[in-house]
Design a protein around this nucleic acid. Sequence first.
DNA 1: ATGCATGTTAGAGTGCGCTCTAAGTCAAGC
DNA 2: GCTTGACTTAGAGCGCACTCTAACATGCAT
Lengths: 129, 129
Amino acid sequence: MSQLSVSEAVAETGLSAHTLRYYEKEMLLYEVPRDSGGRRFYTRELIAAIKFISALRATGMSIHGIKDYIDLYRRGEHTAQQRMGLLQSHEEAVQAQLKKTRASLNMIQRKIALYQSQLDAVAPNKQRA
Amino acid sequence: MSQLSVSEAVAETGLSAHTLRYYEKEMLLYEVPRDSGGRRFYTRELIAAIKFISALRATGMSIHGIKDYIDLYRRGEHTAQQRMGLLQSHEEAVQAQLKKTRASLNMIQRKIALYQSQLDAVAPNKQRA
DNA sequence: ATGCATGTTAGAGTGCGCTCTAAGTCAAGC
DNA sequence: GCTTGACTTAGAGCGCACTCTAACATGCAT
């Protein structure tokens, strides 16, 4: 069970088979093994890589940015420091993005509150009727 | 000063002139007034609308979704309840998105910590040297 | 009156991240 | 042996949100 078929990997990662192939073509995934019939299967390590790539995507890192990270990975252990630096600067970007989103959300929430008081003035205490 | 030229509106909102025109074409902005020479200018109300639209965009609402909201606005006061509902369901979507982003960020932070301990094992106490 | 910055238009182009298509292969079950 | 379903490929297509182009107009400063 440490080797998943395409459909199992789809179920496990939440990505589509199309997207898995696309990531492979873009070199985010490499050395994906095949069975005797030429079909892909995904090892535990690959599934972990896919999940990490998904986390990078979900936080807004571009495919290109992820590729840079993966390329460092492929170049060996001596790139660990650079990889960490990459992740750290991404983390900063995500924190900034979160801050901006929270500020925008706040503005939206104030607007909702405005609607609530406005609707309340028109039809007050409706819940007590 | 309650009427801003294009370049002033650009400075005030952080959007490009291209994007302002694009939003107008997509009907997110309407009745943008013109001076005698046919040039646009932006009233206080328009600037506020642009900033609110930017907040919706920054939280991931699509242009189409914003258009739906604006269309309700144009139809008059009796749509206030619907508009509020729209904002509320958007708020929920944003909260869910934030949650997902935080979870992904957490995964990335754990990876960074892993790098840190790994690099520390190779060159421990470097800071004390 | 000349030059230059700032604006106007319609429409084309761009970059991103998938997403789909079409035609074919393979293995297992009936 | 035949069907079915899961897979394969190269490459095209798509939706989104801008972003830019080209040719032209206006208005202020020298």
